[in-house]
Amino acid sequence: MVSLALMIIDHREHHLESVRAAVSTLTYPLQYIASLPLSAGDAISEIFSSRTRLQDENRNLKRENLLLQVHQQKMNALEAENMRLRNLLESSFKIGDRVLIAELMAVDMDPYRQQVLINKGSNSGVFKGQPVLDANGVMGQVVHVNRFTSSVLIVTDTSHALPVQINRNGLRAIAMGTGRINKLTLPNLPNNADIREGDLLVTSGLGGRFPPGYPVAKVTSIVREPGLPFANVQARPSAHLERAREVLLVWMLKPLNDSLPDESENPDQTAPAGKVSQ
């Protein structure tokens, strides 16, 4: 009865507000202690759920980051390939002849042969002895032709010889392969020959295989020993032989070998692939 009377008085007159506030203050520690296990359980559950969520998010972000890095690498490769193709196209405009872009498929692992395999063959009109260039200079010539692939002999192969001339003064010479990817040699040049380090060697057009004016190499060293009739001349190929991925196959608009005998008609009178005479 007393409780009911107090409730009615408090509800209508609000005289027990201060008493209720004091009692609530006194009972708060008991309420806090009573709710502590539940609050602690909720907090621990939140911690573990947050940790699990963060771990999942971390794994997802790592996976996305890896995918983005792979895509970025692919984009870098595509950008580099695009630049190489643009350089090749610009080179083809400078050449002025009919050209075809081909890609390298394989590199001969034989240390005594420097050949590469390209993805164009007789089906694309490729022929034996056809000049092959990259965006920077002469790379070699085709020596074997299949229907869909061809083998290219690199200018640095020991069996390759290429008639060249010094761009500065027109002095003719023969650039011979040394078996090293970054070195050519010019034999039989007299000690008093007008040649300097840094001279650009270009194709002379003699021999009927390469049209004139294509860059071949730059002279890197000249050793003249007294008492010897010939100088030791070394040159570095202009083409990026060790890292080229795309090459240009060249057809001359006005072939230089129209007067030469046809290899298919009289093969005994032609020089072997890679061997040319000045």
Rank of each mutant, 00 (worst) to 15 (best):
V247H: 00
V152M: 02
N192F: 10
K128D: 14
D42G: 09
R245G: 14
L248M: 06
V155S: 01
Q114C: 12
H11V: 04
F230W: 11
L184T: 02
T156G: 04
R53V: 11
Q72F: 14
M7L: 15
H71G: 05
N266H: 15
A43F: 13
N76Q: 08
L16G: 01
H15F: 14
A34E: 07
G125L: 03
A135S: 15
A273V: 10
N188R: 13
I222S: 04
Q55K: 11
A80K: 13
A273Y: 13
S204F: 08
V145Y: 00
N182R: 03
L89D: 00
I9R: 12
F127P: 07
V107G: 01
V132L: 06
V223C: 12
H11I: 07
V145G: 02
S204P: 10
S49N: 08
G137T: 01
E197S: 13
V23S: 01
L78G: 03
P212G: 00
F93W: 12
Q31H: 11
P261M: 07
H11D: 04
V233A: 09
D258Y: 10
I47S: 01
L162F: 05
D199V: 02
G227W: 01
P255F: 07
V126R: 03
L256G: 11
N146Y: 10
D157E: 00
E79L: 03
N60K: 14
Q130R: 05
P111T: 00
T185Q: 10
E225L: 10
S3T: 11
H14N: 12
P211D: 13
Y112H: 12
V99Y: 09
V116F: 00
L189P: 10
A5K: 02
E79A: 08
F148W: 09
I181M: 15
P211Q: 11
L30Y: 15
V247E: 07
R51I: 14
L162S: 02
T220S: 12
I9T: 14
P187C: 03
R51K: 15
N266S: 15
N182A: 08
L54K: 11
S259I: 14
L133H: 03
L248W: 00
